[in-house]
């Protein structure tokens, strides 16, 4: 019976995850243009990929975006979780407020943020009409700054989830230890740095992995907010891959970039899965 139950899912995953990954990897060694063509060209598509300045920009942006997104969401999420954990009133309301951005689709998020960050209509317009005439906020249209608007929108969207994970972690900490620490007269910041934060280690790991994979997969936000612009200043690997595959009819290069992305994803995920699965079966 167990085998029968498992087999449909397993078959689906084998074909639709690993089959398709293999297919992509094979295509990356072909000269495919619009549709798949199996004329093998060796590593040529990878060479073309790394010769493309747009791809280099995409990788640099990934580093900026990924770094700030992970740090920003982790810190803010942890901070909010700690605040909410202070036996506050209206906890449910606050939680819902911080969680709701997770519920929105990127089309909606894009509509909101494009509007908020639009200099002529949004935040800048509001501040000026409130009397702050010199207020300028034009990140969305400045090539060097536009990537940060994506960080802002991204952090806004994911922080609630991070908060929920940390909150679950905080609630799982043994109260006895904390009480003992307080009795010993340990100052509050030391309780946090010495006991609570270390105890949240598994939560940090989870949060990191979730954020990292969301960052690498991030596609929706960019498309909704800037479509990769101004210029190519907010290109990310995922948008690069999409445009190569579907807009430019460079399926081979698209597949090569997808393979590079998958390998980097795997290098983050596999060690994590390995450490998680090796010893989580405590009797």
């Amino acid at each position: 019976m167990p085998a029968i139950v498992l087999s449909p899912s397993l078959a689906a995953v084998t074909v639709c995850v690993y089959g398709f990954i293999a297919y992509t990897a094979i295509l990356s060694f072909t000269g495919s243009k619009m549709f798949a063509r199996f004329d093998f060209v060796g590593w040529r598509q990878y060479e073309r990929l790394f010769e493309n300045p747009r791809w280099i920009t995409a990788i640099e942006n990934m580093a900026i975006f990924g770094g700030l997104y992970i740090i920003g969401a982790t810190c803010l999420g942890l901070f909010i979780a700690i605040l909410i954990d202070q036996k506050i009133r209206l906890e449910g309301v606050f939680r819902a407020v911080f969680l709701y951005p997770m519920a929105l689709s990127f089309v909606v998020t894009g509509v909101i943020w494009q509007w908020l960050l639009n200099p002529g209509l949004g935040l800048e317009h509001m501040m000026r009409s409130l009397g702050w005439e010199s207020f300028t906020f034009q990140w969305l249209i400045e090539p060097e700054r536009a990537i940060y608007t994506i960080v802002i929108a991204g952090v806004w969207q994911v922080t609630g989830f991070v908060m929920a994970l940390f909150l679950a972690g905080l609630r799982g900490i043994d109260t006895e230890i904390l009480r003992a620490a307080r009795v010993d007269g340990a100052p509050i910041h030391k309780v946090y740095t010495r006991i609570i934060i270390p105890a949240l280690r598994p939560a940090f790991l989870t949060v990191f992995v979730i954020e990292a994979h969301l960052a690498i997969k991030s596609y929706d936000l960019v498309v909704a907010l800037t479509k990769g612009g101004p210029g190519v200043s907010t290109e990310l690997p995922s948008t690069f891959m999409y445009s190569m595959t579907f807009t430019r009819n460079e399926l081979g290069v698209g597949a090569a970039s997808a393979t590079v992305m998958l390998v980097s994803l795997a290098s983050i995920i596999i060690p994590y899965l390995y450490s998680e699965l090796r010893n989580d079966r405590h009797a």
């Binding site: 899912s9 397993l10 089959g19 992509t24 595959t245």
Partner: peptide, 26 residues
């Protein structure tokens, strides 16, 4: 079993753009 579970788990992380065309064929 852990290996198979791990294989299924990795499926969570696949970028959806790459599966579009093969999925359409399927």
């Amino acid at each position: 079993d852990n290996l198979i579970f791990g294989l299924i788990l990795f499926g969570c992380f696949i970028p959806f753009q790459i599966v579009l065309i093969p999925m359409a064929g399927l």
